[in-house]
Computed example of a mutant assay.
Amino acid sequence: MQRYFVQESHWQENKVTITEEDAHHIKKVMRMTEGDSLIAVHPEGKAYKVSIESVGESIICVVREEITDNKELPQQVTVVQAIGKADKVEWVIQKATELGVSRIIPFQATRSVAKWDHKKQDKKVARFEKIAKEAAEQSERVKVPHVHRVLSLQEVIEETKDYDFRVFAYENEVRNGANRKLSEHIKEMTPGTEVCVIIGPEGGFSPEEADELYQSGFTSVRLGKRILRMETAPLYFLSALSYEWEE
């Protein structure tokens, strides 16, 4: 059943009003009409089955029942992704949302190939938020991940200082044959914990960045025995976490 996230101001008692792009999608793409059902999601993370009462410039729906099936990851996971080409970041946002990420923070690494124009950041973030919303609807989630503006590594460290687990995917852990497997780390990430994983750029972390992360309390981890692309690494991590705690 089609799912739409609806802002809080559009909920009144047992009525929900859907506007703008979502209203257009309902009318023109899905071709729904009075009496058809869909799922509306409240910002508090609750989903409801609703039926369309009227179709006009806005879609007026009546709430029928709450849907209690929870499909969110047990942990609150923040993926800090080194920026690369725009399509790679968009891919990570879409797929990480499908896999249950809670928050995505792009960061400017020393070896990042791409350099984003700060004047265009608002436009980029708006597009990323739209991608996250659509992916959350498609994967039947009740929360849309928050997409942050681009931060420096120092800002990331400060932003995540109170997290329960802070790790970074370090290629040297693979090359040096680190003994501790990712699964051992993940078993410690019990439900309800806040987890931050930092993914480096195409050229990897610089030695200075790795040292700064170690000194700030981050733990380096290896993601399997192979060197992964920057857009593959966060998906590997989220999939491993999901397998351990959801399957």
Rank of each mutant, 00 (worst) to 15 (best):
K27R: 14
Q94R: 13
L182T: 09
I93E: 05
Y163Q: 03
V174F: 07
G200W: 06
E57A: 07
I131C: 11
L151Q: 13
E209P: 03
Q12N: 10
E209R: 02
R103W: 02
G35R: 13
G35Q: 14
K187I: 04
S239R: 04
V147L: 14
M30T: 08
G217H: 07
Q154H: 12
E202H: 14
N172S: 04
S37N: 12
I52Y: 13
E66C: 07
D22N: 09
S58C: 07
Y243V: 12
K130S: 13
E194M: 04
V6F: 09
H146I: 14
T19K: 09
L38H: 07
D69G: 05
V63F: 09
T160G: 00
V80G: 05
G56E: 08
S242D: 06
G45S: 03
Q2L: 10
R175V: 11
T78V: 09
Q75Y: 01
I39N: 10
I227G: 04
A169H: 00
A135I: 10
G35M: 13
M1P: 10
G56H: 06
I39E: 14
I67H: 01
A233E: 09
Q81A: 14
R111D: 03
P145M: 08
T17L: 12
V6L: 04
S216A: 15
G192D: 05
M1Q: 12
E155N: 00
H118T: 15
K85D: 14
G192R: 01
I59N: 13
S206Q: 05
A210Q: 02
G100D: 03
T110Y: 04
V77G: 05
V62N: 12
H118F: 09
E137M: 05
K161Q: 10
M189G: 01
D122F: 07
